[in-house]
């Protein structure tokens, strides 16, 4: 479905203007722009760029926090240790698995919830919206504990409530195996962040022009056809933003794993690995190398999303 836009207008240079130079007005505008964005830019540099650069710097050293005297430069050796360790690749695999499963389920569920919110009767809409958003307001550690208690073999209710399901018994130890542990971890993640995706998709739904829907209706398109041919193509930018944010988020999964299994049964994620080297082992050099690799993975994901979706973010913001 294509959008009708006016053909681009070619600007003509004023005859008096010297070629290539910018006018006083646009220079002033540019200056104002920097003044307005400057403070935020400086804060960003301080709180993000500085720690990232420091991590990159530390990752080149053999550096243990409790033994600062023996800090020594060892080039890329830390990266070599990380990249040749099967544990790293296992963690990458587990992280990707959790990311793919949770984001896929969340997208479908989130879209359904967004449709419910947009179609709900006007007077119950605020209630529906609030109810859907509650899980997102819960702190991740708290939600992880809640799910852990629910599935715990001694304190949990899941085993007794769902004993009628095949594979669930009163003695099912959910956190005793890789598959079942990952299942609960994914479930907790999905419960917690589906509202986030549905909120972003709701904003996208609201942007789909009603005239297009009506035109399609007049042409005899069914509900299903309108969903696939009108609604979804028109909210591509919103879907991309939702997917991108959630994928980046899911790739950094930590809290649920830390609370539920503490990395047992091969459920370590990349973030957990970084935590263990940096915080538990206080091997700042090695841990920083893991963190830098995690950062690069996140950058790669963002890059692939933006290229893959071929969406102009400026367009998504309605600037063009």
């Amino acid at each position: 479905m294509s959008q009708t836009t006016l053909p681009p207008v070619e600007k003509t240079q004023p005859v008096s203007s010297p070629g290539g130079a910018i006018s006083d007005r646009s220079r002033a505008e540019r200056k104002l722009g920097w003044l307005l964005a400057g403070p935020a830019f400086v804060v960003m540099l301080l709180v993000t760029a500085y720690p990232i650069l420091q991590a990159v710097y530390y990752s080149l050293f053999s550096y243990r926090l409790t033994d600062p005297e023996n800090r020594s430069f060892n080039g890329l050796a830390n990266y070599w240790v990380v990249l040749t360790d099967p544990l790293w690749w296992q963690s990458v695999f587990i992280t990707l698995l959790i990311t793919v499963i949770t984001v896929a389920v969340e997208l479908v569920l989130g879209f359904a919830l967004a449709l419910v919110m947009v179609k709900a009767l006007r007077n119950i809409r605020p209630v529906v919206r609030a109810a859907i958003l509650i899980p997102y307001a819960v702190i991740t550690v708290v939600s992880a504990f809640a799910w852990q208690f629910a599935f715990n073999i001694t304190t949990g209710f899941v085993n007794s409530w769902f004993a009628w399901l095949p594979g669930v018994e009163s003695t099912t130890d959910w956190f005793g195996g890789t598959g079942t542990s990952l299942f609960v971890i994914c479930l907790a993640e999905i419960w917690k962040t589906t509202p986030f995706i549905s909120l972003l998709l709701l904003a996208g739904l609201a942007q789909v022009p009603e005239v297009l829907q009506e035109a399609a209706k007049v042409d005899g398109a069914t509900r299903w056809q309108r969903l696939w041919k009108v609604t979804i193509p028109n909210m591509k930018a919103a879907i991309m933003v939702a997917l991108l944010f959630r994928t980046l988020d899911a790739f950094r999964v930590f809290d649920s794993i830390y609370i539920m299994t503490a990395g047992a049964n091969g459920t370590e994620s990349v973030s957990f690995l970084a935590y263990r080297q940096t915080i538990a082992r206080v091997e700042i050099g090695l841990g920083s190398a893991v963190s830098v690799l995690l950062f690069l993975a996140v950058v790669l994901i963002a890059f692939l999303f933006i290229k893959g979706f071929k969406v102009d973010l400026a367009q998504a913001r309605g600037e063009r």
Binding site: I153, T154, T171, T172, D173, F175, G176, A264, N265
Partner: peptide, 14 residues
Amino acid sequence: GSAFSTSSEDTSAT
């Protein structure tokens, strides 16, 4: 018991 690989001091006491 059925959850030995996740059993803590508290689980044991229970």
